[in-house]
Amino acid sequence: MSDRIIDAHIHLDRYAPDDRSLILNNMNDNGVDALVSVSGDLDSAQKNLQMSRDDSRVKPAIGFHPEQELPTDEDVADLLALMDRHRYDMVAVGEIGLPYYLEQEGRIASREAYMEVLEAFIQKAVELDKPIALHAVFDDAPMVCDLLETYSTSKAHFHWFKGDWRTTERMYRNGYLVSVTPDILYKTKTRNLAATYPLEKLMVETDGPWPFEGTFKGKMTHPAMIHQSVQEVAALKQMSVGEVYDELYNNTCHFYELNTG
């Protein structure tokens, strides 16, 4: 297993059909055992569930991505009902969180309304005993930590995390996991996070189809890029590459309760 990987956070439903087929068809050749495919809304969740039925290596999460127009009460109710129906098919509640970028652009009317939606999904995750895949960056992370603490859950995965060190230390104390993207090859903040966050609480992701720069500029985001991320984590932590592969893989399997056999 020393060179096998799991993409801990990808939007597989958002790829063009041909690109999605390419990823799925060459997963084994690229050493990729599973994809945790998060959802952005109800339609996205239904697509992820269908992809999982077609290919068991796709591990679906159900959620509502916060960087979009606030969902209606009916939207939220439909997603919560879908979670109830598919509690044994989904591996997590996600992607959920707060709309940091929309707020920076002045495009949200009520932060409190987004907080209420997030709280409803966290409550459901606790009820179903499911881990949570989170979009909570910069100043939003402490507020999300407050909610997680209110519901006494440590089953939280902060993907693409960007935040201050005080929050980072709080997250580790609470047992939360973080994941790093291929921007570890060129982003100082990501490199610092990977170097300092304990390996037993780290995972790796692509957040595909989000594009990357550096050596990946102009390329379709592919889970195989994670191999370079793993090698960079090992270099930053001054550990053997094989040990880091194994730890990251096991962390993801344990957190998301994945069966990759």
Rank of each mutant, 00 (worst) to 15 (best):
A120W: 03
Y100A: 05
D78M: 12
Y101K: 02
I96K: 01
R87L: 13
M83P: 10
F121E: 10
A120G: 00
Y101V: 07
G97H: 01
I122A: 05
Q104Y: 06
L79N: 08
Y101R: 02
S110Q: 12
A120K: 12
Q104V: 14
L82W: 09
R87M: 11
A81D: 15
E116H: 15
E112D: 15
S110A: 10
Y114T: 02
A92N: 09
I122R: 01
A81C: 15
E95R: 00
I108D: 02
E103S: 13
A81E: 11
L118G: 03
D78I: 09
I96H: 01
L80R: 02
Y114V: 04
R111T: 07
E112R: 15
L79A: 03
L102N: 10
A81L: 10
Y101H: 11
A81M: 09
A120F: 05
L82G: 05
Y114Q: 05
Y101M: 10
M115Q: 10
R87Q: 12
L98N: 04
G94T: 06
E95T: 04
R107S: 12
E119V: 13
D78P: 11
A81S: 15
R111I: 15
E119M: 15
G94R: 00
M90Y: 07
R85I: 11
A109H: 12
V91K: 00
E116T: 11
L79C: 05
G94E: 03
L79R: 07
I108T: 04
A120T: 00
D89W: 04
D89E: 12
I108E: 01
A109W: 07
P99L: 03
Q104C: 08
V93M: 04
Q104D: 09
A120H: 08
A120C: 08
A120N: 06
D84C: 09
P99C: 01
R87S: 15
V93W: 11
E116Y: 10
I108K: 00
L80N: 05
L102A: 06
M115E: 14
R85W: 07
I122W: 05
Y101I: 06
L79V: 13
A92L: 08
M83V: 10
R87W: 08
E95A: 03
R87H: 13
D89T: 15
A81V: 09
Q104F: 05
V91H: 06
D78V: 10
R111K: 14
M83H: 04
Y100S: 01
Y88V: 14
G94Y: 03
R87K: 14
V93I: 14
